[in-house]
Amino acid sequence: MTPRSVLLDRIVPMLYWLLLAAAVWILLRGHNAPGGGFIAGLVAVAASAALAIVLGERVARARLPLAPLPLAASGVLLALVSGLPALFSGHPYLMHFWGAPLEVKLSTVMLFDLGVFLAVWGALAGFVLALLAAWEEAA
């Protein structure tokens, strides 16, 4: 392995959290401004990729909330589940509900968008990390 820059070693983990925070922000504001689950997911993938390139694939993989495939699967599952309340209350599947229990607008549509975010992050980060792993093994 090539010797790494100490500066990068310090900065990139910070960048990772910063990017993730940006991703969450993009995700949350997406309903009313440019953004949303897809873009947020891609930003998170970029964060994971940056971390993996600098600190190695194992580190980036460990920082994921779940392994890539379960992460993607949980995203799909979350989106799937977010439509169930409508189904059980006799409305068409995936019709969303809004409520403001704690002075914050909460909705099932946020769960759906969170699912999109997790699915994109998990799936694409899975590709990046696995390819990088193959790369590192060969190096």
Binding site: H31, N32, A33, G36, G37, H96, S107, D113, V116
Partner: peptide, 15 residues
């Protein structure tokens, strides 16, 4: 309840 119509289409209307 969304102002970004693109996002609303993606997550709600065409969910």
């Amino acid at each position: 309840h969304g102002r970004n119509v693109v996002n609303v289409i993606i997550v709600d209307f065409r969910g």
